[in-house]
Every structure is written in structure tokens, then in C-alpha cells.
Design a protein around this nucleic acid. Structure first.
Lengths: 138, 138
DNA sequence: GATAATTTCATACTTTAGTATGAGTGTTTT
DNA sequence: AAAACACTCATACTAAAGTATGAAATTATC
């Protein structure tokens, strides 16, 4: 938020300087009106692009970033969340067990807990629900 | 593509009109220089926003829209693709069977074919692969 | 109209997933 | 220290998923 205020402040100052500069240039007759207009047009075009990018980027990040608060509110433990991520990658229980250096029965326990906490009947449904909750990357 | 060309053409024309107008206004002394500059700034700011939105929208559509060519090249039939989409929604074979008004064994056949064609060992892996191929919606 | 591809279904089987229960071992938290 | 939690593992079971094979009906395609 502080950044945004700073940028807009700088923008206003730049605008005022532009006004003064262009008025001076016109009076002194050094520069043509077309040149000034073109410069201003380019500058504001760029500003428009940048600001739009910022706004859209925030939107994107909302849909992409992981909602850690949601994970907590659901009550998923660190290990359960890890298992959930591996499920979403398409791994079997056996493969997850190997990857995390634990037994398959341990993974089964974690998976069961994840299903209960996400209110899912299957691991595929858990993936879908986790995506809706934005707790796993797309 | 035609649209883009048309828009840019209109843009150039609008620019030239602006030049003439501002030059005329200044000579006749009806309008202040600040007013003209502000107008131009606003117009180009808006143009910048619009163009940026178009570019980003195309980018988004690339990551969101379904690659029908890919589906064909993989060799997925219409029914198999339907089943794949239902799998991605987290449905069980029985649920898919009900939804598509066929028997569960039919769905099993389709699922098996899908797994072979996507080179997946499990339905969860098939979901992941299908997402990477961009043949199912995120 | 014949051929090829798709869709449908069944049966029998193997494998994986998921549930239930109990229990041991550490870590926090109170 | 005791309670609560997280992680681990096992056994035994049920349910679902996936494979293999064969076959009939439908629909494109040539």
C-alpha cells in the first residue's frame, strides 16, 4: 500500500513538472507542439500499461497463491498437507511413502485424515476441493 | 488479426486529429495548454490500459482454453474425453456411470483407454497430465 | 455395402485406495 | 508433570480402481 501511494505521489509531481516544462518550451519556442504531445502521449501510455499490469498481477496472484490461512482453518497438519500435495501430483500411496521416507500405512492414515478434513470421498475429489480452496498450486 | 489492424489504424487517425485540434486550439487561444495535455494524457493512459488488457487476455486464454488439437493428436474419443473430465471433477466410476447413463463396466473400459492414451498409471496422474496438456479446464 | 472405429457391456481377476482400530513415540501447551 | 497434539506404524478389513478378454451394437468412413 505504501508503495502505491509513493508511486502516485511521484506521478503527480512528474505531471506538474511536465506542465511547467511544456509551457516554458512553448513560450520560448524551442520545441514544437507535436513533439511535446507525442512525449506526453508515450509517457501516459506507458503509465497506463504499468498500472494495468499491477492491477491484473494482483488478481492473478489471488488465484495462484496458496491460502495458508485456509489450510490452518481446515486443520490440516504440515504432514497431511504434504501428502495432499503429492496426491495432487498424481502419486500413489506407495510412491508417496517412498518419497517421504515413511511406510505406506502411514500415508494411508494421512490420506484418510485429509479426506475427512476436506470432506472428500476420494483423493480425486480432494484434489478438486483443495483447488477450490486455493490451498494447492494449479 | 483484422481487428487489431483496424484498431491501430483508427488510433493513428485519432492521433493526427488530436495534433491538428490541439494546434488549432492553441493558435486561436481558446483553450489552455494544461487542458490539452490533460486530455491527451487521459486518452493515452486509457489506450495503454486497453492494449495491455488485450495482450494479457490472450496470455490468459492460452493457459485457460482447451487444446482441441492435442486431444485429437492423443487419439481420445469424444466419450473418453467426457469421462476424463468427470474424473477431473473428482467423481467415482459409479458416479460417472450414473451421470452418463451407462454401466460402470463401460466407464472402466473408457478409463483404462484414457490411462493408456495419456500414459498414466492412475486417474490422479491422468488429471495432472491432462492439465499439463491443457486439454481440461483448470 | 463393407470396413474401421466407437460405444456399449460382462465376467473374472489383481491391485490400489480407503476405513477402523489400536498403539508407540516424540512435541508442545497448559 | 499431564493433557493434547502430531507423526509413526501395523493389522485386518471393505470398497473402489484398474486390467484383460471377448463380444455385440452403433456409427463413421471409404
Amino acid at each position: 500500500m505504501r508503495k502505491t501511494i509513493f508511486i502516485f505521489g511521484a506521478l503527480v509531481v512528474a505531471l506538474l513538472i511536465l506542465f511547467k516544462l511544456s509551457a516554458y518550451s512553448l513560450v520560448s519556442g524551442n520545441t514544437s507542439i507535436e513533439f511535446i504531445i507525442s512525449g506526453i502521449a508515450i509517457i501516459f501510455f506507458i503509465i497506463g500499461v504499468i498500472i494495468n499490469k499491477r492491477v491484473l498481477h494482483k488478481h492473478k496472484s489471488i488465484t495462484k497463491e496458496i491460502d495458508h490461512e485456509k489450510i490452518k482453518s481446515i486443520g490440516l497438519s504440515k504432514r497431511e498437507y504434504e501428502v495432499l500435495c503429492e496426491i495432487a501430483l498424481g502419486l500413489s500411496n506407495k510412491e508417496i511413502a517412498k518419497k517421504l521416507f515413511v511406510s505406506e500405512s502411514t500415508i494411508k492414515t494421512h490420506v484418510s485424515n485429509v479426506l475427512v478434513k476436506l470432506d472428500a470421498k476420494r483423493r480425486t475429489q480432494a484434489i478438486q476441493i483443495a483447488k477450490e480452496f486455493q490451498i494447492i498450486p494449479l
